[in-house]
Nucleic acid binder design. Structure first.
Lengths: 295, 295
DNA sequence: TAAAAATACTCCATAGGTATTTTAT
DNA sequence: ATAAAATACCTATGGAGTATTTTTA
């Protein structure tokens, strides 16, 4: 038995006419006849019967037809899914991304790619914390991730794509609100909040605070939470400068003496995973055109 | 693409080891390697990737695997169903049968066939009125039917297989209960019931009653209904003598002057339909061994 | 070095083609 | 006479084989 026999059988079952079916199948009538004969022989049962000079499906052919249809449909779905990942255009790319890039870097990168490289590519975007993104990359749920750096991941390839400036955030009533820039050591005595310590950015900030003997409340996951708190308390926050913060009025962003490359965001992918041409193409494009690194 | 490639892919996806898979598939490792390569090429996507000297399914291979599995499962179900109808033994035969033979003729015929010809045959028995049986034969729902004769069915082949004696049925209190045999014309004046006129047996009986200027209530579908009525009224009934009547006590069966072959029951099948070897074998067996006709 | 997969090539089975015959309208 | 399917025969593609090389643990 082979796949063509099944396609031939399906068509013949629908038309109940060898000559007609053979035309639609782009084979000759004797070829179709032989193909069906050998299928019937292999099954040990007549799928078609003669009614005068014409043919009709038998009871058994009708039964077999149902199974063949669903088998072929299922197979074709599989082929289509596989092909939509490849093909010369129109691939599918699954992206994992931390919140801070979702509204800013990522749509720009994707739009540029669609405009300049392949407008038929479909992007599935999943949002999550860095650890979620990394897990998705390792499990191959995502093709490419955008997140912080994580150590001891030999199978992952990290490429820095942008630096986020770390700033001091206060509301307009805060005693430091007058300043445009400030040193970390001047913060001593002011209540400070920042990201949860389990996040890479929390760890990074913690490093700078410790060398300056500063304490802080490490409790937040993202800039929106931090912005909300700062709007309504007299705490100050160390946070990444992102467009999310612009939604709050009455906030003041103050430059800090933290190196511009202290907080880097990376594009990451699994070195051991197979990637489609589309994925590779997107990765290359981002590396060459969308990186925004200091110096 | 061909079916073997799919079977090969499935096995390789499960074992993730070419040499091992090729053994289980009874082909050589290079053959398997080539087969999978061409499948990957046709799909335009890598289904497996290298991990050192071993291989692993890719994300895309995993997706494709799901579809291939269900397609192959579906196909195999179809093949199995088709083969179970044929095969050298163990076929399936669908029978339609009127109630009067269900408990008597049919189980005997089937048991004899299972004992003497093919013990692996499976019989699906469906009960219905003659017209239901005929409809099932015409629609190929049934392979073989047992029922009365119906006219103007050129595509159906009827073979008489038994005669049922038509008798007068009364209860023990009936004035005629003393008699062992009686002529139809002696029934004038007694209330009579019999089968519904829409049934073939009702038509047959009606013919004999009319030639003797007798009237009757044509209202019943089967012998059990008739037996029940006769047990509890002082009507008499013209009915077929069947084992169903033995469940009633206090009933008397009286011979009538109706020819023994007035009521014939037929085996019927569709001349235009394809029949498996098993069906043909059963039909022949019944004709040769289970017929019980007068003279 | 040994185990695994890929490559190079060879061969034959068979899918599909052409020409023709058989069957039924 | 004609339309439909089956049969007979032929050809060429490609599926599977053997022998060998490449890769990597």
């Amino acid at each position: 038995m082979n796949l063509n026999q099944l396609y031939y059988f399906k068509k013949l079952a629908e038309l109940e006419h060898y000559t007609q079916a053979s035309k639609e199948l782009f084979i000759t009538q004797p070829s179709l006849s032989g193909s069906i004969s050998s299928l019937e022989e292999e099954l040990g049962i007549a799928l078609f019967q003669h009614h005068g000079r014409n043919i009709k499906l038998t009871k058994y052919g009708k039964g077999f037809y149902q199974y063949v249809c669903s088998a072929l449909t299922e197979l074709e779905k599989g082929i289509e899914k596989a092909r939509e990942k490849s093909g010369s255009y129109g691939g599918v790319i699954d992206l994992g991304c931390i919140p801070t890039l979702i509204g800013d870097f990522l749509p720009v990168a994707i739009n540029d790619y669609l405009k300049n490289v392949d407008s038929k590519t479909k992007f599935n975007i999943f949002q999550g914390m860095t650890l979620d993104v990394i897990e998705g990359i390792e499990s191959e749920k995502y093709d490419v991730g955008f997140c912080s750096y994580i150590e001891n991941k030999q199978n992952l390839e990290f490429h820095p794509i942008m630096a986020q400036e770390l700033i001091l955030l206060v509301n307009n009533n805060h005693p430091l609100a007058e300043k445009d820039s400030i040193c970390l050591k001047e913060l001593s005595g002011y209540p400070l909040i920042t990201y949860r310590h389990s996040l890479p950015i929390g760890k990074t900030i913690s490093k700078y605070l410790k060398t300056n003997h500063l304490k802080a409340l490490y409790a937040y996951d993202d800039e929106i939470s931090i912005g909300g708190v700062i709007s309504n308390t007299d705490s100050a926050a160390i946070t990444a400068k992102t467009p999310f913060l612009y939604q709050f009025s009455h906030l003041k962003m103050i430059k800090l003496d933290i190196p511009i490359d202290a907080r880097l965001i990376y594009m990451v992918y699994n070195k051991d995973s197979y990637h489609t041409l589309h994925v590779n193409s997107f990765v290359s494009y981002v590396l060459e055109n969308e990186c925004n690194l200091p110096l």
